[in-house]
Design a protein around this nucleic acid. Structure first.
Lengths: 408, 408
DNA sequence: AAGCTTTTTCTCGACAGTCGAGAAATTAGA
DNA sequence: TCTAATTTCTCGACTGTCGAGAAAAAGCTT
């Protein structure tokens, strides 16, 4: 059934629009907001007045002197309105970042990721979150959202890790990472989903409009994939399919997940290692392969070593076949490749292209555009901010059913 | 960027909501519409009055005597408001149906599908459309939409067939099927997409809410797949990925599409025939296999013939592997199997399950629910009506920017 | 047959929101 | 000091939804 609409919803939608414009362009004047959103000047007055009363945005101090005329008043998010903590979990460490409502980074620290059960893992995160707020003397109650990312499979709605490289199918529930006094919501997303989110936003900022749909492929110890799409309603739609553990070859090489023949079991770092050293394909793969090890194999491959070359070629074909299946099931789209594996793109490229070439979608639609974007960490952080702030802004607007005209 | 909203859009949205309720439940009273939509009674008065003035809906003659109280006035679509023609293209024939705005079937006829170029094909459709309106003495200008379905790959926005079993990658443009005097829009959708649309609507009508996401798999000479999803906004989102020509086995059996190793090259009727008769896998497959031929092979398989059994098993595994990839890339969802191939589900079942079982998604989420829905033609027609009327209703509302209070 | 009850439809005024036009504010330059 | 330019603010018109209650129209009761 469709949803009903009302005049109040109109205001909500348009308030969200104003906040999102402020996110995208940062610090805007009345008229700029009007131009960017398409709303009438009078409407901007009403909305900004309301948001200002609610102490969500504020008139910024420094106003650019823009020649003659009445000086423009710039609006921006009120920093103290709330805070956001991003938690980026990687295989060997965890990075914490504290960000204020205006999007500026206040604090950042990285901790090694300890061994142990999921309970001790959650406890260490919990402690780090406490540390983050106390170091910056912030009231835990003013943390609006904790945004967590990890490799692996996240529950579609709850912040629960359903499968991860480290804990396997043992679920990890991040709601438990918050002590009392924390009213924040917790969200969990796959790391490559955030990359896709960042890329789709970058594309959206391009003047020409940019690609409205794309895939992000992350190459590393594990293989991640995110799909981003700019929906008709304007809200980007982002998902992280289980690409790395999609079936590549029936009854193929043993994968870390326990299944056989996953893409990752051919294209992940451990798979490259396994093939290069001619270890049997049913061997339980290494928990963690140092990047230097892969670099060594790559060097050998570039020097002409056959098994090393085969290892990368096999990885490339697995990725190419997988991408061809992606295009078959999600339609044609450009692919952005990121992650540490991109350093060896020269060794993977031909395999990827070969793996893609055979299928009907590629024969009809042509080879998809492949773009290398090496700096994955910035993409991940950018994705965190995009997604987190869109949720925070939405929450703030919804939680304030009537920002009444409460006089001074 | 998000979209801006306005009070006028609110009315549009709510008018659409009223029309869609009328579609779903047919012939409703004022209070019923109010209950179904959640809109206030006064709003229903305003909207129905407007739609009635615009001659889109009308108060129906027969009003059910419902005991005491003021008798209810039932609203329904005004039949003469416009017409819809559905064109269902199958491998050997084309079925035309003429439907009025209230959804009642006025005329239906089927024509054999001739040989020849795309031009003569379009010409024959064009002639049949003329015949449909003239037979029922309808002004071609009052045909609002021609909804065409076919197997194969449709262009995402234009009514152009990009690839089809019969014409291959020779594009077929259905806009050319309309003579002058026709102002109708033409839409083209993959046949199994319509099946998915019908199923998602059936699920939506279930009181408990039903599955919000599902896949429809059509087994026949070719393999079709549609995915239906009830989006958060209420509008169902339906897509038809290129499942049949997704890569199953690299460098595998030759497919009708010219590529090698497609799912269809293992699970389509011609593939079953090819394997059962031990024809080499690189043989150009038969253009058309009579259903009776497949039934014969099935009988032999049930009698114990090894090659016949293998043929069905191989088809099952191809489908199972393909579905496992579908679940990997689109998330877990129930699968509804339809089409003529469902008669031999007993021979396919174990292969499908085997093909599904290996992957991580299935190991984590369990075997997806497989439901057999034999009657494909009704599903296709139902899907046509759902999709076509939602477009027609939308068009009608948008084309009437101000249904002004024009007095009598 | 008149009056009562019940149920539905219709109408009115209050309220929320957007928009265009023009007034008010404020600065740079003549 | 005055004027032009530019931005912000304010007002009234318009569109929309909603709740309450009036009006309508039937069956039931006496």
């Amino acid at each position: 059934m469709l949803a009903k609409s009302s005049t109040e919803l109109v205001r909500q939608q348009n308030s969200a629009l104003v906040l999102s414009a402020l996110r995208r362009y940062g610090r805007m004047a009345h008229t700029e907001i009007s131009d960017a959103t398409g709303l009438a000047s009078a409407t901007i007055s009403a909305i900004t007045a309301e948001l200002e009363r609610a102490r969500i945005i504020e008139k910024s101090e420094q106003q650019a002197a823009t020649g003659r005329g009445r000086p423009r008043v710039l609006f921006s998010q009120r920093r103290g309105c709330g805070y956001l903590i991003t938690v980026i979990i990687s295989s060997d460490s965890i990075q914490y970042s504290l960000v204020d409502y205006a999007g500026t980074l206040l604090d950042r620290f990285t901790e090694p990721r300890g061994e142990g059960s999921t309970a001790t893992f959650i406890a260490s995160i919990s402690a780090a979150l406490e540390r983050a707020v106390s170091r910056s003397r912030i009231d835990p109650g003013s943390v609006l959202l904790v945004s967590v990312s990890s490799k692996g499979l996240a529950h579609p709605s709850e912040p629960v890790l359903i499968w991860s490289p480290v804990f396997g199918s043992q679920p990890v529930d991040f709601t438990k990472a918050l002590h009392e006094g924390w009213s924040a919501r917790v969200i969990l997303n796959n790391e490559t989903l955030l990359v896709a989110s960042a890329l789709i936003e970058r594309e959206a900022r391009k003047p020409a409009g940019g690609e409205p749909v794309l895939a992000a492929l992350s190459l590393g110890h594990s293989i991640g994939l995110g799909i981003g799409r700019r929906g008709s309603a304007g809200t980007p739609e982002i998902l992280a399919p289980n690409f790395g553990h999609m079936l590549h070859i029936p009854n193929g090489g043993l994968c870390r997940c326990g299944a056989k023949g996953c893409v990752e079991a051919y294209a992940g770092f451990y798979a490259i290692l396994r093939t290069a050293f001619e270890v049997p394909m049913d061997t339980i793969p290494a928990k963690f392969v140092p990047l230097a090890e892969i670099d060594k194999i790559a060097t050998r491959a570039r020097q002409g070593n056959r098994m090393a070359q085969l290892a990368f070629r096999q990885a490339g074909v697995a990725l190419g076949n997988g991408l061809s299946r992606l295009l078959s099931l999600h339609g044609h789209m450009p692919v952005f490749i990121t992650g540490p594996g991109t350093r060896h793109q020269d060794l993977l490229q031909s395999g990827i292209e070969e793996g893609l070439a055979q299928t009907q979608v590629v024969r009809l639609g042509g080879m998809p555009e492949l773009t290398i974007v090496p700096d994955e960490p910035s993409l991940v952080f950018e994705g965190h901010l995009n997604l987190a702030f869109s949720i925070v802004d939405q929450d703030i607007i919804l939680s304030r059913p009537h920002l009444q005209a409460a006089g001074e």
